[in-house]
């Protein structure tokens, strides 16, 4: 059974990019969320195997959202997506329990590798 991925990112463009990369490698994207709050709701509803989590988002950022998700499911597998220069935030996310990180602009191979590694 292929792994089910939830994509969290506030820009539709980025979601589409990721979706293309992920589905191209045989994973299925079960849902998309536009912000941190949305992500928590969708997580509860969809119970995905993997979440890709953008850090900077309106309403609730990725870090807070991660905390919320990990509270619901301490075993949640979250990959944080960050832009260059957000080193400190990425480290914080890892410390909080993110399993891995990918850096924008996305390199298709690295994204797939990250997902492969934690599934």
């Amino acid at each position: 059974m292929s792994k089910r991925v939830l994509i969290v990112d506030d820009t539709a463009f980025m979601r589409m990019m990721l979706k293309t990369i992920i589905t191209g490698k045989g994973y299925s994207v079960v849902g998309e969320a536009e912000d941190g709050l949305d992500a928590i709701e969708k997580y509860k509803e969809l119970k995905p195997d993997i979440v890709t989590m953008d850090i900077t988002m309106p309403r609730m950022d990725g870090i807070e959202s991660m905390k919320g998700i990990l509270e619901i499911d301490p075993n949640a597998k979250i990959i944080v997506c960050s832009a260059m220069g957000q080193k400190a935030l990425v480290i914080e996310a890892l410390r909080l329990g993110a399993k891995d990180f990918i850096v924008k602009p996305f390199d298709a191979d690295r994204v797939v590798e990250a997902i492969n590694r934690i599934s």
Binding site: S82, M84, K87, V90, I91, L94, D100, F101, V103, D107, R110
Partner: peptide, 10 residues
Amino acid sequence: TPMKSVRAYM
């Protein structure tokens, strides 16, 4: 590798 230091941190 992007963000080498974060990798190193891991």
